[in-house]
């Protein structure tokens, strides 16, 4: 009896979570397939006629393709740069006897605590001084600095869990320290590296505030800013907004599905006796 109750509560909880997180997305997905008349009908209708017109319109009239490309450049660039820096830093902090590495890790964490709005002004001035306002590089730089702390922390904990003998074996087998990192540590830590990569990518893909701050040229806009600027002075193109939002979500879903296997596969099994 008690068990059945626990089970009931569990399923109600799961159901509520799924409804809350997926519900809006499903609503938007159906909205993206509605004609303007269907969207504004009273009472609201869940099912749509399945028109692809909002997608066509978002692409043709609102430049969705360009935003997609810009977002891909910025998010991809951020992910690559962050991973490169973070894996080297995390390796050093996890493995080498860096003096005061505890303090360094805390400092890294502290750096992640500043609210964005507090650093927005200084970053804008720095970027202007560097002539990087309104460039994608100018957006990648703050994204890297914002995602680095989390990436370093996560990677350091992944690296620390890898058996030390693996690297030592690689070094005896003829690798330099960097070679051991690239050939053995990184591949074995792949689940961790992919997890961090996805987190960083998703952050950069979704980020709105800095994207609005740094990029003023509409041709440079990323998806969140671009979609936010869909509404005209007298129009509210709900269909196009929904279509663009769904289109913006699909790459993320694909990315997670693609790498999920690598994340879950538990590559570290069988390295050492365990």
């Amino acid at each position: 009896m008690k068990r059945a109750l626990a089970r009931l509560i569990l399923w109600v909880g799961i159901g509520a979570t799924v409804l809350l997180s997926l519900g809006p997305f499903v609503w938007f997905a159906t909205t993206s397939l509605k004609t303007p008349v269907e969207i504004t009908s009273v009472p609201p209708r869940f099912w749509s006629s399945g028109t692809l017109e909002p997608y066509r319109s978002a692409l043709v009239h609102h430049g969705l393709g360009g935003y997609m490309r810009n977002s891909a450049i910025v998010a991809g660039g951020t992910t690559i740069v962050t991973l490169a820096f973070a894996s080297l830093a995390a390796y050093a902090l996890a493995r080498l006897r860096v003096p005061g590495h505890r303090l360094l890790l805390l400092a890294v964490l502290a750096a992640a605590m500043f609210p964005q709005i507090a650093i927005a002004g200084p970053i804008w001035r720095v970027l202007r001084a560097l002539g990087l306002l309104n460039t994608h590089a100018g957006l990648v730089i703050p994204y890297v600095s914002l995602t680095l702390p989390l990436a370093i922390w996560l990677l350091a904990s992944f690296f620390r869990e890898l058996p030390l003998e693996l690297e030592e074996a690689a070094r005896v087998d003829g690798c330099t320290r960097l070679g051991a990192l690239v050939r053995v540590v990184a591949p074995v830590a792949a689940p961790g590296v992919f997890t961090v990569a996805i987190l960083v990518f998703v952050y950069a893909w979704n980020e709105f505030f800095f994207a609005l701050l740094v990029l003023s040229d509409p041709s440079k806009h990323t998806l969140p800013v671009g979609i936010a600027l869909f509404p005209g002075q007298y129009t509210m193109p709900w269909g196009e907004i929904a279509a663009a939002s769904v289109a913006a979500t699909l790459p993320l879903i694909m990315l997670v599905l693609l790498f999920q296997r690598r994340i879950v596969s538990g590559l570290a099994a069988g390295a050492v006796k365990g």
Binding site: E165, L166, E168, A169, V172, G174, T176, A271, V272, K273
Partner: peptide, 16 residues
Amino acid sequence: RERDVAFVFQSYALYP
């Protein structure tokens, strides 16, 4: 890597 020795670890340390 410059010593040209081979090490067999207690934990084997195979590359997984």
